[in-house]
Design a protein around this nucleic acid. Structure first.
Lengths: 186, 186
DNA sequence: ACCTGAACACCGTTCAAGT
DNA sequence: ACCTGAACACCGTTCAAGT
């Protein structure tokens, strides 16, 4: 009788979140998938909300700190780091869909605080890189907003209508480079 | 005993959709809000899904045909029309949140077909305007994708973190003009 | 033709009882 | 300490019965 840990539930919840959104994080179906009962779940968590929060914590770490560490570890100039960051961000293989699904709950508890923090961290990192590349503080903030909006919009389109996007734009990595070049230019 | 029509339910469903997403379109709470019973609902619709579809049909009309007609009625050059279109699109007052909420269900029935159609129609209209402004067919498609991604990303940010956006970008209408100018330029 | 009210299925939550 | 299984509340759905 292999017993489950809190982390097992959290990991399963994040998978469910990327597949079916916040709604997809359902105790009973997860219990069935994990081969246990709802009663077991309520030993590790006191509410379903707590499970959603655990999944959001996992997502926050993976989509901020871990990505930034990877990019920093690769080294190079700020321009190279930006290109690496966005070639990853525009890569369909790195798409989990969590980002896109979460925005639907932007105003709701408990999603809003996580979404807000992740957005701020990502934009702050982009602005940092732009400042290192020689831009002023104001310019960096402004251009970071444009870059981040481009990323989000692209994420939307890749999820909503990947065929429309590839019809309109040739190669996605080339497209990502175009966007970065535009923001880096004067 | 004022009786309800199918359209009354659809309109209430669209409001609920913008407030609480697809999940927010719940038969029992809507019945309470409309001062009637669930049984009444099932006279006009056969399933909850049918109600969601009715709300989506309303949204599709309002967010494509009606907007395009308004812009066309205003007249002017293609450039002026683009500016009008995007000053409207970037205006927080015109934000219903339906767009943003629907993307969470991008892959799901019955949302996907509506989202796909609306995306295609909007991008096709933008590409039309760019062609009228003298761009080639390919350039127009490419730039329409960039413009539409900018619109979606901005919509995301306005919903997720309006304060972050206004911190980074000064005036939103100025920002919208910047984006249009960039896409119109060579 | 349109609506009510009771019934049942499904998932969130609780809890007494088991190992 | 960790889990089972039965119980109850809420919303989707059905349907017989009312006006």
């Amino acid at each position: 009788v292999s017993r489950l840990s809190r982390d097992d539930w959290a990991a399963a919840a994040l998978t469910a979140l990327s597949e079916g959104g916040v709604r997809g994080v359902a105790v009973e179906p997860l219990a069935v998938r994990l081969g246990t009962t709802k009663g077991s779940f309520y030993w590790h968590f006191s509410t379903r909300r707590e499970l959603v929060v655990a999944a959001l914590e996992l997502w926050e770490r993976r989509s901020t700190s871990e990505v930034i560490e990877t990019v920093e570890a690769a080294g190079g100039t700020p321009e190279q780091k930006l290109r690496l960051l966005f070639s990853r961000a525009f890569d369909p293989r790195s798409l989990t869909g969590v980002d896109v699904r979460l925005v639907a709950h932007a105003g709701e508890e408990p999603v809003s605080e996580f979404l807000d923090r992740v957005t701020r961290r990502r934009m702050a990192y982009i602005a940092d890189l732009l400042r290192s590349a020689g831009h002023t503080h104001d310019q960096s903030a402004r251009r970071a907003a444009v870059l981040y909006a481009a990323f989000l919009g692209n994420l939307h389109l890749m999820h909503t209508a990947p065929d429309i996007l590839s019809d309109a734009v040739g190669s996605l990595s080339e497209y990502a480079d175009d966007v970065v070049r535009f923001v880096l230019g004067p």
